[in-house]
Write a protein that binds this DNA or RNA. Structure first.
Lengths: 172, 172
DNA sequence: GTCTACTGTCTTGACATCGAGATACATATC
DNA sequence: GATATGTATCTCGATGTCAAGACAGTAGAC
């Protein structure tokens, strides 16, 4: 599993620079965590490009997929949506407003709880998210082309371990 | 240590939901890439908390560390800084303005190129970034506690492979 | 029933970011 | 040495996010 001695990347250079400047510190954690951050930043850009073809912003996609995953009738409360997308309530209100204005979701009062609201995917929203999602998967598949399946599984397992404390702890 | 086969995490649930809703699609890429995105989001929050102790915002830290890594005299051009931090030029101008106002960096004209500017770390800036950095490393070390060293190295190698096409290609 | 504490959603103001374009200077070509 | 192209930085307007707090409604304890 430990080949990959190939070319040094940006993070290798960054770590080397730190070793020169602060030889007193153990900068090994950066080898993992800097790469996670940088990769996420690049992924955001790739996603943005993928969605542009379907006239969707990443934030729109995030909300619509949460609804899509919920299954029929594609309906969730704002609270459930913000927990699914890791944003604050103010942000979610704003997102729902704009999605509703774009005709991709609809708001209706929750019949069971008069404080509550339910957000539903419209037909247009459903179509848009479905086509954007297959486009995204195609691109993401390509991004992972450098790793064969066992390596992908190993990577996923390692990431799951790192993620575990967060998923367990916070709940936002 | 506990092998990671046990508890399902949020991404496992997400993947399972997609399998139910879209059994026609291969959603395996999400096992890796969703975890990268989610982990990055959690890391951002952890970093924010770590820096708050030193009165620094993450974006301030990003710029200051780039200068710190450059070594004496801790000086880089705005262009070099924006390439190091993956932000746009407008953002970098704004960041430098505010860092200069906070007394953490200084701007001076580049004597070799009259279009250019050089940004230098002040003594205050140097101290702040050094203490914030050791604080960060301590926390990041803890975040990685779930993986022993060989696993960490394996994870870093796998991430390097994914990152390679980006580091090579864009250069921003 | 009536407090009290909690929950779900929305409002507001501040803020960091981006993208596009403006400006000044540098470099290459002729 | 004039022109054209490229590079470095900054300006400006629009946008998405957050944090804190307001408000209406719910639920538990008594």
């Amino acid at each position: 599993m430990t080949d990959a001695h190939e070319s040094l990347d940006e993070v290798d250079r960054l770590v080397a620079a730190w070793r020169t400047e602060r030889p007193d510190l153990d900068v090994e954690p950066l080898q993992v965590l800097s790469r996670v951050s940088r990769l996420a930043k690049h992924l955001d850009r790739a996603r943005r490009a993928a969605f542009a073809e379907h006239d969707l912003e990443p934030w729109e996609f995030d909300v619509l997929t949460a609804l899509r995953r919920a299954g029929k009738p594609y309906e969730l409360s704002p609270g459930a949506l913000l927990r699914a997308t890791l944003v604050t309530s103010g942000t979610m209100t704003n997102r729902i407003d704009r999605l509703a204005q774009a005709g991709l979701v609809r708001r209706r009062p929750d019949p069971e709880d008069r404080r509550g609201v339910l957000v539903t995917l419209t037909d247009t929203g459903l179509q848009r998210v479905d086509s954007a999602f297959s486009g995204l998967l195609r691109r993401e598949h390509d991004l992972l082309a450098g790793l064969d399946e066992p390596h992908q599984r190993a990577l996923a397992a390692l990431l799951r371990t790192l993620l575990a404390p967060f998923d367990a702890g916070s709940s936002n």
